[in-house]
Design a protein around this nucleic acid. Sequence first.
DNA 1: AAATACGTTCAGTTTTTACTGAACGAATCT
DNA 2: AGATTCGTTCAGTAAAAACTGAACGTATTT
Lengths: 170, 170
Amino acid sequence: MSPTPQPQWITARRKFIEAGGHTTQSFGLGRMIGQMYALLYLSPRPMCLDEIAQELGISKASVSTTIRQLERWTAVKSVWVKGDRRDFYEAETDFQAVLKHGLLATLRKKLDTAGKQIQVVEECLKEATNQTNGDDDKAMEVVVSRLERAKHFQGKVNGLLSNPLLDHLL
Amino acid sequence: MSPTPQPQWITARRKFIEAGGHTTQSFGLGRMIGQMYALLYLSPRPMCLDEIAQELGISKASVSTTIRQLERWTAVKSVWVKGDRRDFYEAETDFQAVLKHGLLATLRKKLDTAGKQIQVVEECLKEATNQTNGDDDKAMEVVVSRLERAKHFQGKVNGLLSNPLLDHLL
DNA sequence: AAATACGTTCAGTTTTTACTGAACGAATCT
DNA sequence: AGATTCGTTCAGTAAAAACTGAACGTATTT
């Protein structure tokens, strides 16, 4: 009995999944998040945790945590399957929506915390402008001006990310 | 003899450096790359490797490798100091330039390799369209159409990143 | 009510990434 | 030429991240 050869499209599917993993990995998001999204993205029907785990060869625990990362990114959503109490998930195939509500939102948030940190430093610095320590005044002035610049830029990018025009470009 | 208290602006500077580290870390770029850039960004004059190493409390080996990451991002550049054979570096303070030549360029490259991977999968899939395996035809068709979609989107984003309009928005 | 099936959490482990110290070649100084 | 002083590389180590199996709470089934 000859061993049933894998249909070509299944190996293609697997390659796509691997590619997804590599891509997210290269973006510093970890490998699994990409593989899992890719798997769901190519699936004709919602999948439950165990199916995903088996398909990717990882533990259910990993699936559980990773799938919720994907949910935060609005990259997947859970769907109801009647007569089955398991949680099923399907991919959000609208990349534009994922980018908008997932990636850009995350970006904004990170930029925002960066801004807050600058704010803190700035206030810490204001208390220093009184202590005139003649010697390295110049060094301090550089710090002040550069900090100002950084803050300004942060605001600029933040504005860009909120710019409705950006949505139209997609 | 009272212990000389740190001038306030120096603690502010240190906080800024830490913040830089946390920021780059949150973007999956590692902590040191942010700290090092922040240090140079606030420095009134170019710094040599040993100064950087001492200031950040890390080995010169780390400085050497990290500084070249920063160079690849066009975030720092080496400058000549006459009468000193050491390599000095200063920060590129024009964030816009860094974004354009560093971040966006890197982004494009990664998107590009992602595109190539899709290409490979697509070709692998074309060979499969002949083998009509009636049973899971539907599953395969989903794969084909989704793949098409992914490819289309990849091209779209790639176009956006190359769009000169993007530069104007900054 | 007991038993089963789910998804989540968490301590522990594996894997990956970041960092270091020592060794080296090249350039500069004596 | 010999002795320093650089920057880089690399094998080894330390730190961080990803992953797992077992235990648990909750909901469903029998």
